[in-house]
Design a protein around this nucleic acid. Sequence first.
DNA 1: CGCTCTGTTGAAGAGGCTCAATATGGGTGG
DNA 2: CCACCCATATTGAGCCTCTTCAACAGAGCG
Lengths: 228, 228
Amino acid sequence: MAEKHQICSHQSCVSLVPIFNHLEEKHRKEIIDAVQSISYKKGDTIYQAGDHSDSLYIVSSGKIRIYRLSESGKEQLIRILYPGEFTGELALFNETTQEAYAEAMTNAQICRIKRSDLQNLIIKYPSISFSLLAEFASRLEKSEKQAASFATEKVETRIALYLADCMDLAEQTTEFVLPMSKKDLASYLGTTPETISRKLAEFEQQGYIKQTSARQIKILDRNGLLLI
Amino acid sequence: MAEKHQICSHQSCVSLVPIFNHLEEKHRKEIIDAVQSISYKKGDTIYQAGDHSDSLYIVSSGKIRIYRLSESGKEQLIRILYPGEFTGELALFNETTQEAYAEAMTNAQICRIKRSDLQNLIIKYPSISFSLLAEFASRLEKSEKQAASFATEKVETRIALYLADCMDLAEQTTEFVLPMSKKDLASYLGTTPETISRKLAEFEQQGYIKQTSARQIKILDRNGLLLI
DNA sequence: CGCTCTGTTGAAGAGGCTCAATATGGGTGG
DNA sequence: CCACCCATATTGAGCCTCTTCAACAGAGCG
């Protein structure tokens, strides 16, 4: 898979990513040496279920889709990675194979660190493990929250909560652009594109939101939304 | 909260728990010194949402329920901890407060390590961080899988998958005892006790399982179950 | 022995999914 | 730069699964 992609040495991701950027300049050099930079084209697969990918992948530029396939073959979008975020951690510390899929949503530049190199770095610079643990903890938190929300909230509520979250991320404004297609959003929220369309239309009609353009949404009544 | 519980020095949990038991005997001593053992009575709260509990809790004996409350006040059971398992990790490496609740399902003995002590241990024995990372990775894996299953499978399928998992855990036999009440199971699987009752009755009628007694189930046709 | 919590069963209704038809729009090639 | 095309999005109708509410049975505990 990787063979067909251009490989070049690349350093920006090391300074970019929170798990390394607390290190001093001179130590970063060492990490940069361990890192390999790879280009992917839109639609390329970075890893897939069953792979023994024993590397950590750090996004340098572009957007990466992480998803799973359920027993019944349906796709669930786990998350979208932006520059500075990483993936591949599960197969790194477990002895299992990948269970998820990673796919480039746009052309992307990815930095890769091999398991053994990362382990050596951790032993040498234990502070890296704190960053990693913090990142894991926060992801676990998010994932459990997401699971709890699937388990206890109805679709309508999950959509409303999601919109409120988006607004909170877009600082200083009540207007934002959905970061993905409604098809992907449906997969992320565990519903269908049809339901998303309908619910957004309902919210608009009830005066909670305004759909400015295709993917742009303005929140008119955040509190109202959350009471749904 | 902890004041009313008996506190005594206790060492069994350190040998018990995978994150420490790979250390040599002489180093374990040091950990035991950092550990505090606390008794809880059935129903006691160990921590709850909003707490700044900056400790790791390791179950020495007993069973602990970890659950969350959703926006709408419904409870979702995240998992049940058995001896050797730990919790509290999220608030440990994050700067956030607890979002979950931990409650003793039975009388229980819990070992507690304070954040700062754990951090010192990690720096001194970096191999602890690998165990922790492995544990985090496997929990994250499970949680994402659970979320994906909520998002994509219908209730019937989730119940069937759960039964198959239980059977796989009960080695050498197709018969097992449900580890929790059906009420809790419903909360864990994101459904209602009524639905669990009905689906189990259906499965039994279709010849996939046999309900031996109150919480005992025998799987007759695992493959059939998984095809539902 | 009675009380309470858990589990079962029935009936009704709602919420969301599926399928299908139609609209829209971004991207591509001419 | 325009036209076309395919993926994405919308809208409607019917249906199915699951939840809800209620009534009752059973088990565990004081």
